[in-house]
Nucleic acid binder design. Structure first.
Lengths: 339, 339
DNA sequence: GACAATCGTCGAACCGGTTCGCAAATGTCA
DNA sequence: TGACATTTGCGAACCGGTTCGACGATTGTC
């Protein structure tokens, strides 16, 4: 392994001079700088990350805590992860991926051992057990997902309330008067997936405001339960003319269910989902949807995190809670209800 | 920050004694060991990862290189990633996620700076530019995906040849005589996605052997192209009675295409895909499929990698190329062709 | 020509662990 | 009681970087 000592020797200077020549933190003559650079190239020198971390107390790594829970819709998580990882790299950071089932103790391990300069938490729950650990950590943290208590952290999330209202209003404008909202499985809500009831509560309230009926139910997360559950719903609410899906698995299962029942979208039923456009295209999800913007959220979180990491001023700045405005991507799956 | 010096002082011993008490690499009296452990608990000591890496030249981190390419089916990658990350953690390692577009230079950066003890490469291409870098690196590497040259590396992959033969034979046994095989987009193959033509070539050969017709074509990776492409195929080969899908996006798009054409599976058409069971359940993919076993492959790769990292004997062991035998998961999407 | 300021470089210390060699304390046996 | 082995803990060196203070050589100023 080639160290900075080897470079210094090859360039005929001291280790400290070599270091300064490379970092530029002190004036070094052009000639010496050239000799050092040549030596670096000739020997193929790359600084040892551990040594540098020890000396500077900066690892240039951010921790990405992704929680994969039973009944959670995992594949969507990948989009957030890529947003985080790609943005981190653009800003000069690598990404340590942490998928431990026990997020709190994994978080403690990572922060206490100083493996990372900052953290991004995905899939944050209402009362997330990881948050006290994160607040106590010396590194700053950014969340994707809105918890009950945002203090001391930067938070980014889709505006699920507005999403719920948009779904209802869109249907209402078209003339629908009875809707069904299929949320994530009850499990997810119990565990504190706040976004589920944030959307649901707002949708219910908006329905009341508009004077229309909204049946809010929990869905399932995979076959065969998800198909059965959708059939059950359509049996239970035969007069409903619109379906709102805050549940990706349900959106994937719906085409077949409707086909089997001989129903056509949007003639017999109008449908709006909530997922990213990339997802819709890859999985052939044919319904208009509220864009969940996972890449944007991941990007925003990392940007803010790095700002805090890198400037001492950033550390002191007030914490932000920022919502991405939902946008409806039209895929022609809604229309006026059949009279 | 609390260091081992603080622990030593609190326990009334030297730093070296504290270190030995914790590592157990030398005999330390029970009483002193107790005092050290108490101090650790009282002060909340966790070793600094950078310092330890510097001293031991072991980071307890493995690098995970995931390549997300245009037209590649990204969501399936998550299953591999989780298999790797979870297994790594079980064995005491953390995972550095690298998603750079330029995999080769990212790999060089990671290995040269000694950030990781070993590497897992996903989505390995026939003539992968990352492999020369990996072979030159001081850390061992394991691949998921079979390249042209496996020398110096441990390789794990699904037996795609056998998968191709199984698909054909299964259809042949049922009485089918004309099949269509939809592969990944041409892009993927051009870039060296060997698994595509490994399956395809084996399928073609087996079809010849059985004396049946197999139309092998490239598919698309997303809507609306993927739907159009499937429709075009069914138009072009009206006599085909069986469809083989080595393309997840095509499997997701097919139900709607068939519905629009008024075709029923398996009465009008028999279908076999190639994807994991977890995937099929979450995305309501209703076709029998060859299990791609992503979690198993990730797990195998990490296991072997850690074996090589941890034992000096492991380093010397001969390199392995191991194939997972394909298994057909029956979802009742195949039957004898309509006469 | 004396003195101060600036520039370029070096030596040494430090970051926080681990590990080697050694010595003091204790125990064993003749 | 003395010789010797064993246990137990300590000091120092090292891993590979960064950074501070100092110092000699230039350059500038009056």
């Amino acid at each position: 392994m080639v160290t900075i000592g080897d470079v210094a020797r090859a360039a005929g200077v001291s280790r400290s001079t070599a270091s300064y020549a490379l970092s530029g933190k002190r004036a070094i003559s052009a000639e010496v700088r050239q000799r050092v650079n040549d030596a670096v190239l000739r020997l193929g020198y790359t600084p040892n990350a551990g040594a540098r971390a020890l000396a500077t107390s900066q690892t240039m790594v951010i921790g990405l805590l992704a929680q994969f829970l039973e009944d959670e819709f995992a594949p969507a998580m990948l989009e957030y992860m890529l947003g985080v990882s790609d943005t981190a790299r653009e800003l000069g950071y690598d990404t340590l991926l942490v998928t431990d089932a026990d997020g709190a103790s994994a978080l403690r391990r990572i922060t206490d051992s100083r493996m990372v300069d900052g953290l991004v938490l995905l899939n944050v729950a209402q009362d997330d057990v990881r948050l006290p650990v994160l607040r106590a950590a010396p590194q700053p943290g950014a969340l994707v997902g809105l918890p009950g208590d945002c203090s001391g952290l930067d938070v980014f999330d889709l505006d699920f309330e507005e999403a719920g209202r948009m779904m209802v209003d869109h249907m209402h404008r078209l003339g629908h008067r009875e809707l069904i909202l299929v949320s994530q499985p009850e499990h997810v809500v119990e565990r504190g997936g706040a976004y589920v009831w944030r959307l649901q509560d707002a949708a219910l309230q908006q329905a009341r405001l508009r004077g229309i009926t909204l049946h809010a139910v929990f869905g399932e997360s995979r076959q065969p339960a998800v198909g059965r559950s959708l059939n059950g719903l359509l049996d239970s609410y035969p007069d409903a003319t619109g379906l709102l899906l805050n549940n990706e698995a349900a959106a994937a299962a719906l085409p077949t269910v409707l086909h089997e029942r001989g129903l056509t979208v949007p003639d017999d039923l109008s449908v709006i989902g909530r997922y990213s456009d990339g997802f819709a295209r890859v999985f052939s999800l044919p319904y208009s949807s509220i864009e969940s913007a996972p890449d944007r959220l991941g990007r925003m979180a990392v940007r803010q995190l790095v700002r805090r990491i890198e400037s001492e001023a950033g550390r002191a700045e007030p914490y932000v809670v920022r919502f991405v405005a939902p946008e409806l991507v039209d895929r022609k799956s809604t229309a006026a209800p059949r009279t």
